[in-house]
Amino acid sequence: MIRARVEGNVVSTVCHQTMKGWRLLICQPLDGDGKDSGQPVMAIDPQGAGVGSTIVITTDGKGVREFLGVDKTPIRNMILAIEDE
């Protein structure tokens, strides 16, 4: 799990069927001090996070597969939580 900041979203009509219907957000990974580290990644968003909010995303597909209840999904980034402070 890594901390990230929501920077925007993405529209994709042609995608893997297990991704259809999910909001796709652009997340900028953050390091320990809250500064940007690395390039932005896309994550599905079951939590309804808004742009600019700090979130926690999973980078391992196992949690996503269990959450979606689907074995054959390529998704590995999913928003787990939105930070209050």
Partner: peptide
Amino acid sequence: AFNCALIDEITYQG
């Protein structure tokens, strides 16, 4: 490495 989406539109930093 697997292609799972063709991106149509990007909204990034406004």
